[in-house]
Amino acid sequence: MSTLHVDHDQLAAYAERRLTPTEYQRVEHHLADCAECRRDAVAVTLVLRSDRRRRVLRVAAPLAAAAALLFVLLPPKPGPEETPRFRPGSPREAATVIPVWSPTTAATPGSDRRLIWGSAGPGTLYRLTVTDSSGGVVWTHQLVDTIAAIPDSASIRAGARYHWYVDALLVNGERATTGLRDRRLAP
């Protein structure tokens, strides 16, 4: 393999996320301008990921079977009320779109942190996620209401643009989302 390309070890380590930040940056610098190594990086990363999933399933399947057997055989114990949890997903998996009532720009002082969306039905649990303009999550909150205010502790600078979205878990197990929304804090 030509020395002009990322060597086997570095490319494999990139796919496995084993590089130091400096090495990572150096490899990405090369990938940005080398279509061949880029294709290698994508292919190898996806192969390793699918192989890892297969191994996890191979280990997890017998454990899941054993757990199911225990669940059937053991009598239920009284315990704390179960809290519904969100599974990580994507907008494509969410069949329903929730309407948003918050305007893009704040009409009154203080309202730039207030977010309002439509109800997806009684008993729905909502997860609100707020990110800064670079995509970093600055605040996330689970609630049953359809209005929330971003706390001052969430690190968004005055005047900065931010993004937010709400994922909903309906009582019938289906998912819904507002999709990605933009807002800007008052200066």
Partner: peptide, 21 residues
Amino acid sequence: RGYRVDATSGFGAWLTVVARR
């Protein structure tokens, strides 16, 4: 023999790259 003892990557990942190339 190209897989070094001090390699950063795991052998399986390294082999995947070598095989593809």
